[in-house]
């Protein structure tokens, strides 16, 4: 059984003549422990695909099986529950909470999962330490460089020990060298048995990943 299986997933925004078909009946399987890049030009539907995988958006049609369970068309509460525990999301612009310390930032998903405060702080510190930020736990995001911020975001994505890490252009705001570091971290995560799905429009990363899914105009053209 695949970790992720999409069957005939489509997403239409609007209706009638102005309807936009962001995804057209996409079928996709992603196995556990693979590093996947979703590649495509802008407007190709790769962000919509990532939103689907992250349960941020609901498909117009089709089914989405995550760890053997159909998670398409669940209630908001159930989708939030799964998003919190099964999926870790990393954004292009980091999306850290500027008024909280990086330790608190990493704690955030664990709060939603209802962890004990002590447990939460210990795990957050451990994750940040692992990503080389162990000495800066009390710093606020504005005191850190872009690369460091993205490490915090990765730690935050890992907080609830999710099955899938989703990256929305995670290297887009970083210089080449820092971007490569991030890819290195993703490789480590994959080696641990995690699944990493990364949206990118940078063809250079094709060589780095195990699998490339290419989208064009809402259709999967290569997988």
């Amino acid at each position: 059984m695949s970790l992720i299986q999409l069957q005939g997933i489509s997403r239409v925004y609007g209706s009638g003549k102005t309807a936009v078909h962001a995804l057209r009946s996409a079928d996709l399987r992603i196995e556990k422990g693979t590093f996947v890049a979703i590649y495509g030009a802008s407007g190709s539907g790769k962000s919509t695909m990532l939103n689907m995988l992250g349960l941020l958006d609901e498909p117009t049609a089709g089914s989405y099986w995550l760890e053997g369970r159909n998670v398409a068309n669940l209630s908001d509460k159930e989708r939030s529950y799964i998003r919190c525990r099964k999926v870790g999301i990393i954004f292009q612009s980091f999306n850290l909470f500027p008024h909280f310390s990086i330790l608190e930032n990493v704690c955030m998903p664990m709060r939603f999962a209802g962890l004990e405060r002590k447990e939460m702080l210990a795990r957050a510190a451990e994750l940040l330490d692992r990503l080389g930020l162990g000495s800066r736990l009390k710093h606020s995001p504005s005191q850190l460089s872009g690369g460091q911020c993205q490490r915090v975001a990765i730690a935050r994505a890992l907080a609830n020990n999710p099955a899938v890490i989703l990256g929305d252009e995670p290297t887009g705001n970083l210089d080449e060298k820092t971007g490569d570091e991030m890819i290195g971290i993703f490789h480590e995560l994959v080696a641990e048995g995690r699944t990493v799905v990364m949206v990118t429009h940078n063809a250079e990363y094709e060589k780095e990943v195990q699998r490339v899914i290419e989208l064009h105009d809402g259709t999967v053209v290569r997988q």
């Binding site: 941020l56 509460k77 939030s80 998003r83 525990r85 954004f91 998903p109």
Partner: peptide, 16 residues
């Protein structure tokens, strides 16, 4: 708004 979106992406339900 962006912060709210991020909270939702991290698993906060509407109620939170």
């Amino acid at each position: 708004t962006k912060e709210i979106g991020t909270l939702r992406a991290l698993g906060a339900p509407k109620q939170t």
